[in-house]
Design a protein around this nucleic acid. Sequence first.
RNA 1: GGUCCUGUGACCGAGUGGCUAGGUAGAGCUCUGCAAAAGCUUCCACAGCGGUUCGAAUCCGCUCGGGACCUCCA
Length: 505
Amino acid sequence: MSTLKVYNTLTRQKEEFKSITPGLVGMYVCGPTVSGESHLGHARPYITFDIVYRYLQYLGYKVRYVRNITDAGHFEEEGREAEDKISKKAVLEKLEPMELVQKYTNLFHWAMKQFNTIEPSIEPTATGHIVEQIVMIEKIITDGYAYEANGSVYFDVEKYNADFSKKGLPYGMLSGRVLDDQLDTTRDLDNQEEKRNKQDFALWKKAPPEHIMRWASPWGEGFPGWHIECSAMSTKYLGDQFDIHGGGMDLQFPHHECEIAQSAVCNDKLAATYWIHNNMITINGRKMGKSYNNVIKLSELFSGDHPILEQAYSPMTVRFFILQTHYRSTLDFGNDALQASEKGLKRLWEAHEALQKMKAAEDEFDPEKIDAELDNKVVTLLAEFDEFMNDDLNTAKVLASMFEIVPVINSIKDKHILPSLLSRETFVVMQSKMKLFVEDIFGLKSELQGDYTKLEGVLQVLIELRKQAKAKKDYATSDIIRKQLMELGIALKDEKDGNISYSFV
RNA sequence: GGUCCUGUGACCGAGUGGCUAGGUAGAGCUCUGCAAAAGCUUCCACAGCGGUUCGAAUCCGCUCGGGACCUCCA
């Protein structure tokens, strides 16, 4: 069996995945900043790494998956009003900062549940780890790689780079940036005069009087810088060195680069072995993001309540949409594309459900009747599930293979072909493997909510009435039943054997 | 300006130098009381120009276009 290969941003190539401790994997993924509602772009990393999490478990690893909640309010360096993002919005909305944080955390959790993502093993908050962050900053100062200025603390990038380049941990190793190239590219930023060099970044920020979120520290009242929380929490829960660090590509620099530097000073190690980054979701070819003013919030997506949305799109449609593209490619949002996904998902899901309902009774199979070509084809397609996932988690290719199996399933269901064209073993493997990949690894699920037993009973009554009408060639009655149910979103289908099935549209 | 990515058919997209990606949409056929679904068949591609090669969507160069990061950002 082939082994998992993942693209490591650090080395710019696909590498065989080997965990530091056999059988165990530590994975840290940068979580949301809960100062606002999550949008479609945010869905991508969490769904991507949900797949990574599920797949690693399928491979037999015990995974500790840590995903933080950034609720401490990162300092906004850009712009005139140097105010904390969270405190700023809190004033606008007349809410307590923590009330706001709670609201958006709840919304985030709600959205993640809609997407059927598995909760991380640990979901630490930045505000819950102020002490750890302060300890880390103190260590960096003691070692001489940070300095205090006017109640704030900055990381000395130049000094770090000079010393740690020798250890193979230069600043810029992840993003491929060379420090010297950047000297004249940084714009004027707030409190620039406090820094020794423009590229230095804040570890601790002095809180201005209007800033509500503040904590006591050795340097006065303030709040942590933007990058230190991830270093502090990943170290605390995953150790000095862990296996996978994930996040969006836009976090590569400066966020992850700074994490590497901070952890290198404190732990004398490269924080993570594999750095995995998902690409962006775009809209009209442009990255979806606050700064571009082109976001579609998840709640809007699910309700269809947004000017550019032609309809609502269900969480599973969105999940499927994301899985149809390789995680390192950009994915362009559009109504056409989402509608295509919606239909594709329906086709896949219905075939999958039909397959699971089939019984592999012994007497349906006969070694004499096997169509070797078809059997081989199915066996190959099923083997490709693992092969493609092992090749840097190529969910798009796995889906393509699944869609090649769909006609086989439907043909058996509609009795175009006999199940006995496949060997019993192939049939059974097909059933279990489709279930495993569709549900357990890709995390797709039925979107029907609640208890449908009573409705199903009612439907059976109507179906029976329609059958009787059809038998009497009373097509007026049979058509009315079908038409009115259709208006309710229930499609009746006359099967070949005279039975009538239904599906929810 | 610096660093990097990218340009595939109506739309979204996969593609390791030679083999049908796949989904959706379109066309035809089969099944069917009609329909839906399904099955079968089918149309529409690799931005442009040059080069390497027996052979390039895939490698190299140039041109044009799009984008990301360099600043909070998934």
